[in-house]
Amino acid sequence: MSRTDPFRPVDDTARTLARELIDGARHAALATLRPDLGLPSVSRIALATDDAGGPVTLISTLADHTQALRTNPACALLVGDPGKTGDPLTHPRLTLHATARFISRESADHTTLRSRYLTLRPKAKLYVDFADFGFVRFDISDALLNGGFGKAWRLTQADLWPDQRTT
């Protein structure tokens, strides 16, 4: 039995939809591996973007997913919300494969991220300066875009950030 490749060639439609999903995401499902058992775990995190359009979050050191990322920074983010009506599988979603990078509070990067994050997520002002909270930048390696039934693409880092060099 032969299998056909379900992925379409990447085009501007896919690139635009992926960027819209990243830029519009207020939260994401974060997939990590639990360090105690090596089992997958998923949690919801708040999400914003840095000045370059890359995903970032502000998380507590008390969270299980923080400990998981410190042990193994490989992770995945799922962005995209189902619509209010209809089958949730018909709505676009994007899986981002990433490496989490913790940002030191003493760095200039932290100051820049803090300012942008509060502009995008002003309610975070309540806890952004708590000692147990810190920023995590997600360095994206590639992505899987599902635009609904029969519309799937594999995207590279260059597809998501065409004007920037890869990390």
Rank of each mutant, 00 (worst) to 15 (best):
S107N: 09
T16F: 10
G150S: 13
G147S: 05
L144I: 13
G53P: 08
R105M: 11
V79I: 13
L30E: 06
T32S: 07
F133Q: 02
L77H: 04
R15N: 08
K125D: 12
D51P: 03
F7Y: 15
D139E: 10
L69P: 00
D36K: 09
R8E: 12
T99E: 12
H27L: 11
A152H: 05
D87T: 02
N146Y: 09
T167S: 04
A68W: 02
L17V: 09
G86Y: 00
A28S: 13
A25E: 06
A48W: 04
S2D: 03
S141C: 10
D129T: 09
S104W: 03
L94N: 09
R19Q: 14
A74V: 05
S2K: 11
W153Y: 15
L47Y: 14
D23N: 14
H110C: 11
R15E: 03
S115V: 06
D5E: 06
G24E: 14
A76V: 06
P73R: 03
A158H: 10
T112S: 15
G38H: 02
V79F: 05
G38E: 01
F102G: 10
L144Q: 11
T85D: 11
S107V: 07
R44W: 05
A48K: 02
T112L: 09
D159E: 03
R114I: 07
P162W: 08
A124N: 04
P40H: 00
A158V: 08
A25H: 12
R116W: 04
L30N: 01
I45V: 14
D36G: 02
T61C: 02
L78G: 07
S2E: 12
R19K: 15
T156E: 08
L69S: 01
E106G: 15
L62P: 03
M1Y: 10
A143K: 03
L89T: 05
V136Y: 00
S2T: 12
D159R: 00
